[in-house]
């Protein structure tokens, strides 16, 4: 799971819908907690965060 810092503007939707996968930094921008691999049971949550990002800044590589 990856976040494009150039696209992220801090809407904060990702850490609201996927708190186990994304945390907010001091500005309210998203930080990916497991950039290399996240637990398989969280895949739905991860995809939801990616879909909900208004800037389409989150990508999930499989």
């Amino acid at each position: 799971m990856d976040i494009n810092d150039q696209r992220c503007t801090g809407h904060g939707r990702c850490y609201e819908v996927a708190p186990a996968l994304v945390e907010d930094d001091e500005r309210g921008y998203g930080i990916i907690l497991h950039p290399d691999a996240f637990p398989a049971e969280l895949e739905d949550e991860a995809r939801r965060a990616a879909r909900l990002c208004p800037e389409q800044a989150i990508t999930i590589r499989t």
Partner: peptide, 8 residues
């Protein structure tokens, strides 16, 4: 300004 509206 962004930090002024952060959840924290």
């Amino acid at each position: 300004l962004d930090p002024m509206f952060a959840p924290k």
